[in-house]
């Protein structure tokens, strides 16, 4: 994943706010990196740009070797499909769909990509087994513990074998022991799935679990 001089501003004139200022960075497969910085520093904005859900004002970006953004213009017309094929998301509060059980929460991603229900459920089941929550595959999200729900969420992020996994505060809702387990798991998955993991975090106790830390301040990359 390569970002070149990514900028994003909101508003114009005196109301203009520069959320990102010429941010350039490069992350390689199997790397687990963190975006750090105080509130308003541009971490989430940068995560949204990498996730192809926010239009940047300028810059270029390559994902998995594909030039998807050039000079602030998306090179793909169907960003939804790009997200579905290449990017997995892990959320701070899991964001599991409350009306689907654990298996279907994972299987839905594959079904959206075109897989039939049986294949999707089989793979979902295997992923849940891999993440050691197979015994909870029929449980509804409300019945899962925080750690179990986060594992199901990770399984969902991995369902389509994405090359990039974006994690928004993945350990914020967990105690330090479980946070450590989740980070170990993410590292293992990055290696096994040959994926890049980019996480936004404030959780200092897991800083040492990342390969690289990118510090943002006032929209600029100040260290990384």
């Amino acid at each position: 994943m390569q970002l070149k001089r990514i900028s994003k501003h909101f508003g114009e004139g005196e109301a203009r706010v520069d959320a990102l200022r010429e941010v350039s960075l490069e992350v390689f497969p199997r790397q687990v990196v963190a975006l750090l910085g105080p509130s308003g520093s541009g971490k989430t904005t940068l995560l949204n740009v990498i996730g192809c859900i926010l239009d940047p004002s300028a810059g270029s970006m390559e994902l998995d070797g594909d030039l998807v953004l050039r000079d602030g213009e998306w090179q793909r017309s169907n960003l939804r499909r790009l997200r579905l094929d290449k990017i997995g998301f892990i959320f701070q509060f899991h964001n599991l769909l409350p009306f689907l059980d654990a298996t279907d929460n994972v299987a839905i991603v594959q079904q959206l990509a075109g897989a039939d229900a049986a294949t999707a459920r089989k793979r979902a089941s295997a992923l849940l087994d891999d993440l050691e929550v197979g015994h909870r595959k029929h449980a509804m999200p409300a019945k899962l513990s925080g750690g179990e729900a986060q594992r199901v969420a990770i399984a969902r992020a991995l369902a389509n074998s994405p090359r990039i996994i974006l994690a928004d505060e993945p350990t914020a809702a967990l105690d330090s022991k479980r946070a450590g387990i989740v980070m170990d798991l993410l590292r293992k998955l990055a290696v096994e799935h040959d994926a890049t993991i980019v996480a936004v975090t404030h959780d200092e106790k897991i800083f040492d679990r990342f390969d690289r830390l990118f510090h943002l301040r006032d929209g600029r990359l100040v260290d990384g």
């Binding site: 996730g51 859900i53 939804r80 499909r81 997200r83 579905l84 998301f89 959320f91 964001n95 769909l97 409350p98 839905i108 991603v109 959206l112 990509a113 969902r156």
Partner: peptide
């Protein structure tokens, strides 16, 4: 809305 946003983020098309 939060669930819809999640669906959109994970790649659900508008028709879904």
């Amino acid at each position: 809305l939060k669930q819809i946003a999640t669906l959109k983020l994970i790649g659900a098309p508008d028709r879904t």
